[in-house]
């Protein structure tokens, strides 16, 4: 870690707007993400969380705003206006994206090893033996038995599929990983194990994360800081514990109280 670099954000989103027709999904959203930081985006279903995540990742074109990313090369790239070639390259190398549904984030017809090796091959790695060794290391790192390397993801449990998706993203040592409801649809015990793993990996690899979730429990466990979204706007932001223990905005208070009453 270089301290002076950590004084500047890794990502600065400035006044991002995104509408679907007349429906405003993200309105004037600005925030910074710092190296190694985990930012949680919470809010009820339909509040614009996934839209924001997809817009940041360049999967959806934005209407206006800047997405300023400080690349490993130390140059600042506005992903909102970068060329396809540059954006796609960054997404495959310095960024990762973990989907809620593993089937959207994995190649279901290819073995676990191929899934982990894909990004490396996309970068030009052409040594089968080394690709395999790397895949074995990453399977261990995400607590999947190495002998499953040639098995198809569909023979894996939901939790294993998510862990495989994480391995497949982390293999290029990204600096930012975006996760959309990474524990959604999993059993509570499976969720807990996955959250532990994410926390450990994020720390070990010093990855900055943006985690979208409607589950405040997940947010509390993972995120250093939270942004609360409602109707496409950020209504409140702050350190996770402060925000959850002492919510200021009426909507956040409602969210917190409803989760407590469940």
């Amino acid at each position: 870690m270089t301290p002076d670099l950590d004084q500047t954000p890794l990502l600065s989103v400035e006044a991002l707007n995104k509408s679907f027709g007349r429906h405003v999904a993200c309105h004037d959203i600005s925030f910074d993400l710092w190296p190694g930081e985990v930012l949680g985006i919470v809010g009820e279903s339909g509040s614009g969380k996934s839209t924001l995540l997809n817009a940041i990742a360049g999967r959806l074109p934005v209407d206006s705003g800047k997405i300023l990313y400080r690349a490993a090369s130390n140059s600042i790239v506005d992903l909102a206006s970068a060329s396809d070639a540059q954006r796609r390259h960054l997404m495959r190398t310095e960024w990762g994206f973990v989907q809620q549904h593993a089937r959207d984030g994995l190649r279901m017809g290819f073995s676990a090893g191929a899934n982990i090796g894909e990004r490396l091959m996309a970068l030009g790695d052409k040594h089968y033996g080394k690709l395999r060794d790397t895949a074995l290391d990453w399977l261990r790192a995400v607590e999947i038995a190495p002998e499953r390397i040639d098995d198809l993801p569909r023979t894996f449990s939901g939790g294993m599929q998510q862990r495989l998706q994480i391995a497949r993203n982390l293999v290029t040592r990204p600096r930012i990983v975006l996760m959309d409801e990474p524990t959604g649809g999993l059993d509570v015990s499976v969720q807990a194990r996955l959250l532990d793993l994410i926390r450990r990996l994020v720390q070990e690899h010093h990855v900055a994360c943006i985690v979208v979730t409607h589950d405040l429990g997940v947010a509390r466990l993972l995120a250093h800081r939270l942004m609360v979204m409602r109707h496409g706007q950020v209504v409140e932001a702050g350190l996770t514990d402060q925000l959850l223990d002492d919510p200021q905005h009426a909507y956040t208070q409602l969210l917190v109280s409803s989760v407590l009453s469940v």
Binding site: S111, E118, D150
Partner: peptide
């Protein structure tokens, strides 16, 4: 078309990898 335009061909090796693995 975009993949051709950007020479994004590395992923073809995923198929060959799978051949060898299987």
């Amino acid at each position: 078309r975009k993949m051709h335009a950007l020479s994004e061909y590395g992923v073809m090796h995923v198929k060959l990898y799978e051949d060898i693995a299987q």
